[in-house]
Amino acid sequence: MPSPAIDDYLKTIYHHTEWQDERITPSQLAVELGLAPSSVTEMVQKLAAQGLVSHRPYGPITLTEAGERRAAAIVRRHRLVETWLVREFGYAWDEVHDEAEILEHAISDRFLERIAERLGDPAFDPHGDAIPDAAGQVRRERFVLLRDAAAGHEGRVLRVSDRDPALLRSLEDAGIDVGRTVRVVDAATVAVDGTEAVLPEGAADAVWLTA
């Protein structure tokens, strides 16, 4: 049955491993969701009983096949809504996350697919995150986190984390957005169109480039 609480858990677990390989732990999940560890432990047990996650005490949490399908479906909703708000209503990329959190639970499947059709079935949202297709499949290029990119590496900005709206605005002011080609000077500096730009604090852990 539809449940915003369950969907939020599955979406967070899904998102955790999109841009790195480490599985999420219950304590990390509690931090991500802003909930007490005891509440998260109880919900994870319920998700495991429903066959949506696999989890052993004190170990990481893994989505089952059924959990992956359901998570991909809600992630698709969220990212399509974000894209719709930016393209059709003029929202900035730092304004859409909270709106999408509300709308993703409120619209019907039929309306969602009308949005997808209207947008031309986009593969990526405004932050560069992949939008799963109706079957839950995604496509991604090989990537490297800015912090891990070697000096001199040149790549296209694939993704910028939407966790911090203020950081998004600062990066935009520095000329950094999805699709922009940059050359790495160091973890705090990149060259954009031949001009060096000092990045705001936190950018090295929030920007992914083509590998």
Rank of each mutant, 00 (worst) to 15 (best):
G34H: 01
G136A: 05
R140T: 14
Y9P: 11
G90I: 01
I74N: 04
H15N: 11
L103Q: 03
V86A: 02
A48Y: 07
D98S: 15
P165R: 00
G51W: 05
G51F: 05
H55W: 11
D186Y: 14
T189P: 02
V184E: 03
H16F: 14
L112R: 08
R77V: 13
V190P: 08
G136Y: 01
Q45M: 10
R139P: 10
A149V: 07
R87G: 03
S161K: 04
F111Q: 11
D7Q: 00
V178Q: 05
R118W: 00
E141K: 14
L168C: 06
T83Y: 00
Y58E: 04
E101K: 15
V192W: 10
T25N: 06
D121L: 01
G175Q: 02
V207W: 10
E201T: 13
V157K: 09
R183A: 04
V185A: 11
Y9H: 09
V207E: 04
Y14I: 06
Q45W: 10
A135D: 15
G136P: 11
R142G: 10
A92T: 05
W208D: 02
S39N: 12
P57I: 01
L10C: 00
V160I: 15
R183F: 01
E32Y: 09
E104L: 15
V44I: 10
R76P: 09
F124A: 07
D148H: 12
R140K: 14
Q45C: 05
R183E: 09
T64H: 12
Q50A: 15
V185C: 10
V178H: 05
G90A: 02
T210I: 04
D164Y: 07
I115R: 01
R156C: 09
G128I: 01
H16M: 06
L199F: 13
A130N: 05
T41I: 09
L167K: 03
S170Y: 13
R69T: 11
A36H: 14
S3P: 06
M1R: 15
P200K: 04
E32W: 08
E32V: 04
R118C: 08
H97C: 09
E99S: 08
V86T: 08
A191I: 08
E154P: 07
H105F: 12
A149C: 08
V190N: 03
S108T: 13
D186I: 15
H127Y: 07
V96N: 04
R77I: 13
E42T: 15
